[in-house]
């Protein structure tokens, strides 16, 4: 099989299209690149959707935690503590078995036991907790003068939040939020390793990398390929978030804004 044929057969294997059987013998580099790359589709799917949806929940959580009212503050604090204080790995397991038992209650919960939705929910909540904490920190460090200026203009409530506090919060939180995004993409690699089964061998990049490493007893090829893919994704995230950072800081004098300092976090 030539390389072009391999790509045609396996490029969308992780979604269930193309060749049904995974290669079993005579593994070529091309196969490994194609299949692991195909698995990256899942990592990107989880990462992008969790970030998009998690962003809004995180904003709500941060506002809740900063609220003077106990009824809002306590739930937000607990939410953040639970998701930041326990391993994501255990969260995945717990959620999977929780969804399994919910399935027995009512068939409405059926889709939740698949990685597509169940793992996505866990990732969304997880990133919401981590970014919620980041946003909360930023909300606390909004310069006092900004809020006073908004008050002086007679802005209150929603207008003051939308026009003054929210943009400043984002601007302050952005470098840390970039790290969180990178770190979330890394966390997506855990999905198929914790509980959630890969049906019909439709797995993510790590799933295929692990498959090749198991079959060939040679970890020195698939894992570096996987690492390469993740580095590309990380660079893309840094690039995109850097653009947003430029836009968020566009009103400041050119030397005034802090350059994005990328310090990827480790593991959750």
């Amino acid at each position: 099989m030539s390389c072009a044929e391999t790509i045609a057969a396996y490029a969308f294997r992780s979604l269930g299209y193309g060749e049904r059987l995974l290669p079993r013998t005579d593994f070529t580099l091309c196969q490994q690149f194609t299949l692991i790359g195909s698995g990256m589709i899942w990592n990107i799917y989880f990462g992008v959707l969790a970030l998009l949806i998690g962003f809004f929940i995180a904003t709500a959580v941060a506002i809740g935690k900063a609220s003077p009212r106990k009824a809002f503050r306590k739930p937000a604090e607990w939410f953040i503590f639970i998701f930041r204080g326990s391993p994501l790995f255990i969260q995945f397991f717990f959620a999977y078995f929780l969804f399994l038992s919910l399935k027995g209650v009512s068939p409405i919960f059926n889709p939740l036991t698949s990685a597509t939705f169940g793992a996505l929910i866990v990732l969304i909540l997880n990133t919401a907790a981590y970014s919620g904490e980041i946003f909360y920190g930023a909300l606390q460090s909004i310069p006092k003068g900004d809020i006073e200026a908004a008050d002086a203009y007679g802005m209150t409530g929603w207008a003051r939040f939308k026009r003054v506090m929210w943009p400043t919060m984002l601007r302050l939180a952005w470098p840390a939020y970039t790290n969180e995004a990178i770190f979330l993409f890394h966390a997506t690699a855990l999905v198929f390793f914790a509980g959630f089964p890969a049906s019909q061998q439709k797995g993510d990049a790590l799933y295929y990398a692990n498959y090749f490493a198991d079959k060939t007893f040679n970890p020195f090829v698939p894992y570096p390929i996987l690492a390469g893919y993740f580095i590309i994704v990380t660079l893309c995230v840094i690039g995109l978030f850097g653009l947003v950072n430029r836009r968020l800081n566009r009103h400041l004098p050119a030397t005034g804004y802090k350059k994005l300092k990328i310090r990827p976090q480790l593991l959750r």
């Binding site: 990178i182 993409f185 890394h186 966390a187 690699a189 855990l190 390793f193 790590l206 990398a209 692990n210 490493a213 007893f217 970890p219 020195f220 894992y223 996987l226 690492a227 993740f230 580095i231 990380t234 990827p264 480790l266 593991l267």
Partner: peptide, 19 residues
């Protein structure tokens, strides 16, 4: 170690060290 998910390291190192 930066830029790569650590779970990859965990899977990689155990086999690599053993070998």
């Amino acid at each position: 170690v930066r830029g790569i998910p650590d779970i990859v390291f965990f899977l990689f190192f155990v086999i690599a060290l053993d070998q």
